[in-house]
Write a protein that binds this DNA or RNA. Structure first.
Lengths: 216, 216
DNA sequence: CTTAATTTGTCCGTATGTATG
DNA sequence: ACATACATACGGACAAATTAA
């Protein structure tokens, strides 16, 4: 005895129990975002399991981005809004859907939606884009679109977009031409005028051009 | 020596590297759903890390429901559509009501895009929907939308949609009313007539109704 | 039916890198 | 510089479940 003993209850894997208990502990202990969790050894003692088991549970939560561990410091509660859901699943989902056209189309859908959401709320955030467009010379389209996604306020869509952006060899990571600039100005203008139909059309036609240019 | 050695590179945690390599291995080895992965000890040898590290990676994937392990048998590749993310993340995230709105909006973006893509190609696939709508009595909206996503041919968008659908407590998993039916008929008609503007409007207005009905 | 081999489940001990005081 | 606390990682040991001989 003393080694692989107890296992009091039964089937539901021990480490999943630990995950549950960790959540309880976080709640009871009122641990805030950025707050420190007990050390692995302390957790092992308090929850009466081995350190390895604690680590398996901790690592699971870390992969999801729910906690953050720093060697020499400890384990900290992360901002759960920054969870890694999309990233983790994508590695398994994108495995068999590697069609670049799908990625492209899906990304565009998210961009359209961003415009849609921006036009429903106040679009004062767009002033940042306007200024950057006027002032900055070597600005990239990628940055502009990203700002557009951020301005929409949909963090989930942003995450997915960022991911798709990484996966696709994207044609926006280059300095913009004058033509590109005028497109963007028209787009922003359409948004400000409240003409969603036009805004969507501009986004689409302009990306079609890119699409024909770099199929890959 | 030979214990806590190497750690050649630096920051990106070893076990996340293992998760990545595991995914590669699954792909290269052509392991199908339900198929068996190498044993923990074999993985430890092949990937040249300790068994504990392999377990941390494996346990992370198990918590997500991406793999399944059975004592005495081995580790098996699970159907990723049966992932456990809802259960795991919900307890951490569901408090944030804004994120559920994000899920809803993002899902709708994908549905809009599906309509868009269907209208660009031949939409003969829609006949299935039409028939089901005429014949079947206890048909669910969820099924219809899913078929719409399938018909679009974008597998990536479909997978993301399926994921978001599980994520949100969705209001479509119930028999359709007569009003819902007429909405769908109008929608399909608009698609067949080639009036995308109208089709998008129908989709949107109808989902607004649902949104107001079940906030949650 | 018994036995042995395989595999996951769990624990422990140990060495090392890193941050803090 | 030193000691302490902590996460990181390795390897060994034994328990328990399954499978095959």
């Amino acid at each position: 005895m003393g080694k692989g003993d107890d296992m009091t209850s039964a089937s539901p894997k021990l480490f999943t129990e630990i995950v549950r208990q960790l959540r309880e502990l976080i709640e009871q202990e009122r641990i805030q975002i950025g707050g420190k969790l007990p050390s692995e050894r302390e957790l092992a003692e308090r929850l009466e399991v081995g350190r390895s088991t604690i680590r398996e549970a901790l690592r699971s939560l870390e992969l999801l981005g729910l906690i953050e561990t720093r060697r020499g410091e400890g384990t900290f509660l992360a901002d759960f809004r920054k969870h890694k859901l999309v990233e983790v699943l994508a590695t398994f989902i994108l495995k068999d859907t590697k069609s670049t056209e799908d990625i492209y189309a899906t990304r565009q859908a998210l961009e359209k939606q961003a415009i849609h959401e921006i036009m429903k709320s106040d679009f004062s955030n767009l002033s940042i884009l306007k200024n950057a467009l006027e002032v900055n010379e070597d600005i990239e389209q990628e940055w502009l679109i990203k700002e557009l996604m951020i301005a929409s306020g949909n963090r989930l869509a942003l995450k997915i977009w960022l991911l798709l952006n990484e996966y696709s060899s994207n044609p926006f990571k280059k300095p913009m031409s004058e033509e590109d600039r005028s497109y963007w100005k028209k787009l922003i203008q359409a948004v400000e005028l409240g003409d969603e139909m036009l805004a969507q059309q501009i986004l689409e036609s302009w990306q079609y051009g890119v699409k024909g240019e770099t199929p890959q």
